[in-house]
């Protein structure tokens, strides 16, 4: 299975806008398992890029490499041309990559509002001293975070739940709070790991509209991992297909649909 170059990238045409994210030859192993094998693709700014592939293909692993939670054995990841190789996990949000997790990971004892405020953490400056004595600068920043969090909660239509403990939410609400938390980092790029997982038909439709407005209204580039083919194909400008840790197709939804290796990969794992 070799990568099928379906689309000449903007960069290679010369003079076109630079790529926001470049994943170059990323390889990640867990003991004997090669979870990612020379993965190379790029994400153009202002687009929704779908990342699909059967279970175990390495999609979440790739996200974890982008978050620096995993360190790839080989390859490089660049955001706006800047390599993430020497970044700590905590640097990533500040550099402009927000993310959600495949199963929502909220801070359960905090309120919904505080969960989203954590998303703004990287942009804050308050330290223990300014906090301890609630200096004016500290108060100003808290008010600003409050506003960001409330606006973001309104955006995901959970404004009414701000004061509720995160632990009391339904699964679908948890996913939306997690999305709001990722957006509150005001990222250039947001990574969504199976946002439709566990949602019903109506919720998926709402989610589709929400993801579109993340790109159009918030002007945030989206990298979307999703099993829901209808959703991915209708939303994505570009689709990257992973199978057994390798890119087997990369192109527009129409182009990718026509690649035999893609159909094979999916049929092969169908029960």
């Amino acid at each position: 299975m070799s990568g099928v170059p379906l689309r000449t990238t903007a960069a290679s045409q010369g003079g076109a806008p630079a790529q926001l994210l470049e994943v170059a030859d990323v390889t990640m192993r867990f003991g004997g398992i090669v979870a990612l094998d020379g993965v190379t693709f790029s994400v153009a700014p202002g687009r929704i890029t779908g990342l699909i592939g059967p279970n175990g293909a390495g999609k979440t692993t790739l996200f974890n490499c982008l978050s620096r939670l995993y360190r790839p054995a080989r390859g490089d990841i660049r955001l706006n041309g800047r390599s993430l190789a020497d970044c700590a996990p905590a640097d990533i949000a500040g550099l402009g990559i927000g993310r959600t997790f495949q199963s929502p990971t909220l801070f359960d004892s905090l309120s919904v509002l505080d969960n989203v405020k954590i998303g703004a953490h990287a942009r804050g400056r308050n330290g223990p001293l300014t906090d301890a004595f609630t200096l004016p600068s500290s108060r100003r920043e808290e008010r600003e975070f409050d506003l960001i969090a409330r606006v973001t909660l309104d955006f995901v239509e959970l404004g009414g739940a701000a004061t509720r403990p995160a632990a009391s939410l339904t699964f679908a609400q948890r996913k939306r709070v997690e999305l709001a938390r990722a957006l509150a980092t005001k990222p250039a790029l947001v990574l969504l790991d199976e946002p439709a997982g566990g949602l019903n038909h109506d919720e998926v439709a709402q989610l589709g509209a929400l993801i579109r407005s993340i790109r159009d209204k918030l002007e945030i580039t989206v990298l979307l991992v999703e099993h829901h083919m209808g959703l991915v194909m209708s939303l994505s400008d570009q689709v990257v297909v992973l199978n057994f840790g390798r890119v087997i197709a990369d192109g527009t939804p129409e182009e990718v649909r026509g690649v035999p290796a893609v159909t094979e990969a999916y049929l092969g794992t169908r029960h």
Partner: peptide, 29 residues
């Protein structure tokens, strides 16, 4: 109370609840 109501305390509690998610949100754990 001031610390716990501020950015510092929120980061402490986030780490307690979910250290990986806290790091992914930019908290230097």
């Amino acid at each position: 109370a001031n610390l716990l109501n501020g950015r510092t305390g929120r980061a402490w509690m986030a780490i307690r609840d979910h250290p990986i998610a806290a790091a992914a949100m930019g908290v230097d754990t």
